[in-house]
């Protein structure tokens, strides 16, 4: 049986070999722009439908309507960040007076952008109950409170949906910062 000291040496030397091995270039690659998470200054475009790819303006989103699915877009480089599901957004307009204070930093004139990816197992949150202002996940029935930072009301989702801070200036909606939390689901650790 090797001693602890021996083990440590083995590991150090092993590590050295790994660093030298030409096969082990693990340097973190920067994601492609179309897969990068939303960046400050990005605009939002319609993800689907007749107006797919068009820039969304504040007037496009009606109060209490079913969420509009959107992707962030970097205008200067003409790149829509649609090649990762983790960039899918749900855009809703709610009464600004009704919003919880946790949303202060994220909402703009009642306009809120949530991640569309359920925190349970990563399904796309598609459902909308206008009466209760609940976002619902079709896969396993999780319900999120749209006016309360997507707090989980029901179902197996462990965490609220991530929020993306928005800014409205000169009639344009832009992204004002990073998501409020990690987007998507996490496998439990045992």
């Amino acid at each position: 049986m090797p001693t602890n000291q021996g083990r440590r040496t083995t590991l150090k030397l092993g590590l050295l070999a790994v660093l030298w091995s030409p096969l082990s270039v693990f340097a973190a690659r920067k994601p492609k722009p179309e897969k990068m998470r939303p960046q400050t200054g990005d605009h939002l475009v319609f993800a689907y439908g007749e107006r797919e790819g068009e820039i969304i303006t504040p007037g496009d989103i009606t109060l209490n309507a079913k969420p509009t699915e959107a992707f962030p877009k970097h205008l200067a480089s003409n790149v829509t960040r649609s090649r990762s599901r983790l960039n899918a957004l749900l855009l809703v307009r709610l009464d600004p007076q009704s919003l919880s204070s946790v949303m202060d930093k994220y909402a703009a004139d009642g306009l809120v952008a949530y991640s569309a990816v359920c925190t349970h197992t990563g399904c796309t949150v598609e459902g909308w109950d206008a009466a209760t202002q609940e976002l619902t996940c079709p896969c396993h029935g999780s319900k999120y409170a749209a006016a309360n930072g997507a707090k989980v009301l029901l179902g197996p989702a462990p965490k609220p949906l991530a929020m993306l801070p928005l800014k409205i200036k000169g009639g344009e909606i832009t992204v004002a910062g990073a998501f409020s939390r990690k987007v998507g689901f996490t496998v439990n650790k045992y």
Partner: peptide, 16 residues
Amino acid sequence: ALVFCAFVMTAQADDL
């Protein structure tokens, strides 16, 4: 020599 040694050691670490 060091690389060779390290490979041998790594193989040992694998088994451990």
